[in-house]
Design a protein around this nucleic acid. Sequence first.
DNA 1: GTACAGGCAGTAT
DNA 2: ATACTGCCTGTA
Length: 287
Amino acid sequence: MQSLSQGFDPVLSINSGQVFLWEKHDDSWYGIYSKHVIRLTKAGGRLEFSSFPELESCEQKMFRLDDDIGRIRTEISHDPFVYKLVKAYPGLRLIRQEPHQCLFSFVCASNTNIPMIRRMLYNLTKKFGAPVQVDGKEFFTFPSVVDINRATVDELCACGLGYRVKAIKAVAESIASGKLDFGALKNASYEDAKKELLQVYGIGNKIADCVLLFSLEKLDAFPIDVWIARALASHYKWLYKKQFGEKITSHQYELLSGSIREYFGRYAGYAQQYIYYHMRQNAGKKW
DNA sequence: GTACAGGCAGTAT
DNA sequence: ATACTGCCTGTA
């Protein structure tokens, strides 16, 4: 059992759309971090973290307390829009994810919505993960690559993955064969790591950038999904050398990505997170 | 019925 | 280089 000092809001962060397998029961939030169940409890203004089985200093890892958040915020705040967002959402943090779970999660996230993503991932854990009892409730760990490789296409389809099964299988195969090696990717540059990820069937620009940012320590990665694309079109129009449509092509992605990463610098991914959160918060609102 | 949701790959121009 | 298409599945 560990306690956390105040200053950020983990509940806000886990509900900001970076992670999917979290649920609330009574006064606690429970999340799946690979083979562990993480419990977050707000007790009398204090935050308590536990993990089952125990994962040493999981809150340090998960919430990137090793990052110099003050410096990061200062650096990305040279942009006036992000400056406002940093003030507006002081509790928001980037969450560090476990690479396998992160990659499979974002492969499932393509062309669908968050409730569906949660359902697919929950089905996967229930079918192929291992049960863990915490506080009298049953949770399921995230399946391993071996588990997913062993699964048949039909079994995966039954989880509601649809056409994503082909990509899931390709990813699992790449990891199992050693072609995709997260350890090596962590040590590689952003450009080299991204190149490797893009080799795999089913991994495109957006998914690659999500995995690089959320699980492979590439804080300069700047995933551009539909929400971010809208934000760039309305707040960063000057980045566009020419007009793009609603949907951006692979080449346009690379152009935009290059410009915005250069603009925000080594912590561009943090800037992305503030912008993304803001866009989701204000979805449907006039602003 | 049909449009749409946190993309991607394949094909044709 | 860009445009267009289909794709599982559930919900509005």
